[in-house]
Nucleic acid binder design. Structure first.
Lengths: 237, 237, 237, 237
DNA sequence: CATGAATGAGTCTTCATTCAT
DNA sequence: CATGAATGAAGACTCATTCAT
């Protein structure tokens, strides 16, 4: 009943009000993370928060606004950080690394919130509603696409790559990487696991995207493929 | 009411056949693709299929089994093809390309079904149910992880890469790439768009993953295989 | 498939038709006995009978008529025998014994049918329907009431007893006695158990009902008159 | 619509109280009494109680629990009174009279509730559910059987009578006697009718059961306690 | 006669949302 | 602000009944 000192500032207000509201929000995140938006009832959120049923409706117009708020709370910060990175000046390489960093850190700080975002955002067609969420989600991809387009101009990225696709690949990699954690596919004994993942993620992506001789004679104009791979020190050969 | 067309097309297409079960399945795929599992009512499926409400229950035990069947129908073939590619003999490069191929072709053949899979599979916590779906989804990632692990042994893939993560990245890239199509981010005017995406997807991924001098000043080669990773069968030493 | 020779006559027809019809009827009795009328579906009956779903509707207009037929089949014979006993000439004592005999024998011959009758007859308010059944059930009590009224005239039964109540007691005793068997409260190892019950039932009832000095200082002869009962010649006078 | 009266009478009787649960329970008893468990819809109960549909589910988990509660409410008191009588010290004669008294009084106080009990209790096979009800019902017969067994030891009851059967007869008589009222076979103009019935019921039963010279040429005294009978605790030698 | 697919009205049950206290 | 009882629309599921073959 009194453990939410640390975050009451975020919600603003008298402090006591922020307390309750924030408690409910946290509860919502937890329950959404556990059972998904559709699988949870307002009653679940209220119980998890330890407040009365009706109180949820004091702070949130309806269930949808609650989810929307969860979304904004969790996603908002992520997006703005992402945006500031994407639109900042600097080398693309660094930007990509910082984007991965933002994502992984978000997960480290609040895995449940990330789980909700991954689970519920941009995944629900649900007529009408969900549009705004999907919209924001797509926006961030477009943002990154712009970033890649600019990087192509400056020669930082292979020119034959579709910027939009590059952006999709980046976030796809990030998202599925996190999913691997979320789903327990990769479990986190020590915090280094996340760091390793972050590193591998960004570097692997960069290798694929940066221009350079490294390409396995990529020549997707004729798709000959296969031959001529020279592993530096192949074990098999 | 121009969707009357769509309905009769779906339902009456072959018409005389007693294969109403299949009609219903198609209708379910369409409605799921349009509104998602939760957003669709049995009544919608029945109307879309042009059959009576109760008939859905004649062929499917309940809504869940219907979804499950949609899942198996769409996913089953995909998985088995994926598996046969992953477990086949041959160069990793080819395998990756063929995997991308399978995915993109699946989308080309039946974009709605793919949309349902992307939307509903492995994305819904939904207590209890969904387990099997998530399970299969994770299995395919493990499968790919094995493939990468073996490729590491033969030196076809950088040894410092976590196989599980590599698998996650591959499917993340594929999935988000398709999502870009599904969501309209990348518009499909000409069929070549898909081919281009397929090519870029696989080649970009391969660049990032194959061994070679191309790596940007990667400086983390050390702590490999440290911890936190759960390979299904750690064959490599 | 061929054990219903004895009753095919009742159903009439070619014999083969009687076969099917009778099979269904037997199945209905069994299922009703096991799950009750409401708890059973036409599908259950069809499966139990080993015939096709729709065939039930060839022989019976609807579920209700099926039950009605079960009722008439099982109850009809019982009632007519009961009636012939009640309206026969002879000593009341004998009649009572024969009534108990008819009931117990019915149970011995076809316990399941009796179970259905006990369970479903005259017990279901079910608006409208059931009236006929209840009607017949009450009729038999009225019948017995008449029997007792006549026996009072001839001095075979205590005159201070309400005939209707006496009839109710008799059938109540019979029914609950059978219920004790049906429910397993008394189980039937050897057939004598039923005979004993029959004997005790009728003799105990008779002791209570026959005139005689045995009455335990019965002192309630006063408040006669009351409800619709007219002892022809009150004892007090 | 003159039943609006009935409704408001039932629902608004005390009105201001928040004891809607009780209102619903009463309504359920009334509707069950009128249409039986299967014939009644939750909507009926809600309408009868004058409350919203959903409120029924606020107080009762489901239709079955509602019936179960009706059962416990009505039956519970009856059983405990019955038990205390059966297990009390005193002459068997008095006990029997008091048992009849309890039953008849229960009917006088709340005929509808008794109707429900008679109609629904121990009469519905209904797989699984109903077990508890049947169980309690049989328990009370076993209880009475014990009472009779003890009375046999002290010579208060004929020794050649099966206690279990005696118990069945007693309750059969009571139940069918009440059924006669419930079904309108015996009309209740004046309240004395019930008293008469009570008296006749107990005295008739006692005559049949008490030892004494009154027995008609009973000639079966021998084979007592032969077989097939399951006394809960066969104490008598 | 037989079959079992097809129909759809009837019910239960859930749960977001409102409201009196 | 807090509470939780009250509301009722929405939707899954059942199953008696019909019908084409």
């Amino acid at each position: 009943m009194s453990q939410q000192q640390g975050k009451s500032a975020a919600a603003g207000g008298t402090g006591r009000e922020g307390d309750r509201r924030h408690t409910i929000l946290r509860a919502a995140i937890d329950v959404f993370a556990r059972k998904g938006y559709h699988g949870c009832r307002i009653a679940d959120v209220a119980r998890e928060a330890g407040v009365a049923y009706g109180l949820v409706y004091h702070y949130f117009k309806n269930k949808d606004e609650l989810l929307e708020t969860v979304f904004e709370t969790g996603w908002g910060g992520f997006v703005s950080r992402m945006r500031s990175v994407a639109q900042s000046e600097g080398a693309l390489e660094d930007k990509v690394r910082r984007i991965a960093d933002v994502a992984i850190e978000a997960y480290r700080v609040d895995p449940r919130a990330v789980r909700v975002l991954i689970l519920e955002i941009a995944r629900n067609p649900s007529g009408g509603r969900g549009i705004s969420r999907q919209h924001v989600f797509l926006d961030i991809i477009r943002l990154a696409a712009d970033m890649f387009a600019k990087a192509q101009e400056s020669g930082e990225v292979r020119k034959d790559l579709d910027p939009m696709l590059a952006a999709a690949l980046l976030f796809g990699a990030i998202e599925m990487g996190l999913t691997a954690f979320v789903s327990g596919l990769i479990d986190i004994k020590n915090p280094e696991a996340l760091d390793r993942a972050k590193l591998q993620l960004s570097e692997t992506f960069l290798r694929g995207v940066l221009p350079g001789a490294a390409s396995p004679e990529v020549s997707w104009k004729q798709e000959k493929s296969s031959s001529g791979i020279k592993p530096k020190e192949g074990r098999g050969s």
